[in-house]
């Protein structure tokens, strides 16, 4: 008998969702630092983090571009706006994200970057003349970042044909995971000790919340229809269980959480192992959810 040939989403979509979620986390963190005026003391979160975001987001969009089967038609995303299509929302949201990130970089230009491009210095001076504007840029970055993070989950959860994705918890999970990965990267690379300490503490909170969200996500599926229960089984006991339990939950959340809890309580020294595991766990979470979701069907 003949079945249709299916083309599924490959590595590009999980990478795009991971990088998009991480950038969402960066925007919320850097927006918070700008909103609270911390950019005056540390330019990492307000200047370098948005720059890193621009790079990560562009890399994510490139992965999305690679996934398109009709690449020369990519501009078609911007010839219409489909209210019912999360992918259309995403395409337009990304257009808002870029200027927001650029504005945040201009709030705090580090001394080493001053007097390089005069127009940027002038814009930065104008922005800093109005403290309310600086706060609004910070708040706007937080809001747009949150929308971006939610979108990465909504993109999948709107597809009711795939029971695993069809959960109202998915956007919360991806947003929390994005925040967690972003905090982990700040913890890993920020030159500012206070920022690293704050990020590690924040990440512990995100990881605990992420665990709770995963539990609720699975409980929601298991207590729903047969299709949803079968979808949950793919993660709980099925072919994706080893990666889900071993790498996403244990190595990606529980282990780094224990290490970071000990570190922030000064029992052990901070180690790059924990944030690296968190970031890898966030990436694998997207891979597992995207792959298992495509394997889940309405029977």
């Amino acid at each position: 008998m003949i079945d249709p040939v299916l083309h599924a989403w490959g590595w590009e979509i999980p990478v795009y969702l991971f990088l998009g979620g991480m950038v969402a986390g960066f925007m919320i963190i850097s927006g918070y630092f700008t909103l609270k005026g911390h950019h005056k003391h540390s330019d990492f979160s307000s200047f370098y983090l948005p720059h890193i975001s621009l790079f990560f987001l562009s890399a994510g969009m490139f992965a999305l571009f690679l996934d398109l089967e009709y690449k020369v038609h990519v501009w078609r995303f911007y010839t219409t706006f489909k209210f019912t299509s999360p992918m259309s929302w995403g395409a337009w949201i990304l257009l808002v994200v870029y200027p927001m990130l650029l504005l945040n970089t201009l709030v705090s230009i580090p001394k080493s970057f001053r007097n390089r491009i005069s127009i940027f210095d002038r814009i930065s001076d104008v922005i800093n003349r109005y403290p309310a504007l600086v706060k609004n840029i910070g708040a706007a970055n937080m809001v747009v970042g949150a929308v971006l993070g939610m979108y990465t989950g909504v993109l999948l959860s709107a597809l009711a044909a795939r029971p695993l994705w069809n959960s109202a918890m998915l956007w919360i999970l991806f947003l929390t995971s994005g925040l967690s990965s972003a905090a982990a990267l700040v913890h890993l690379i920020s030159p500012d000790k206070t920022e690293r300490e704050v990020s590690a503490k924040a990440d512990n909170g995100f990881l605990i919340f992420e665990l709770l969200v995963i539990v609720l996500f699975l409980v929601g599926l298991v207590t729903s229809t047969r299709a949803h229960k079968q979808a949950a089984d793919l993660l709980l006991t099925g072919p994706y269980a080893p990666v889900f339990w071993g790498f996403v939950i244990l190595a990606g959340i529980v282990l780094p959480l224990i290490i970071q809890l000990l570190a922030v309580n000064h029992k052990i020294r901070h180690t790059p192992v924990a944030p690296l595991f968190v970031i890898a766990g966030g990436l694998l979470l997207r891979f597992v959810i995207v792959a298992a979701g495509q394997a889940s069907v309405i029977p």
């Binding site: 989403w9 089967e69 009709y70 038609h73 995303f77 992918m87 597809l159 044909a161």
Partner: peptide, 11 residues
């Protein structure tokens, strides 16, 4: 008009 994003296939 199709960009080949495969959202319809997943849906």
């Amino acid at each position: 008009l199709c960009v080949g994003c495969k959202a319809c296939i997943a849906a």
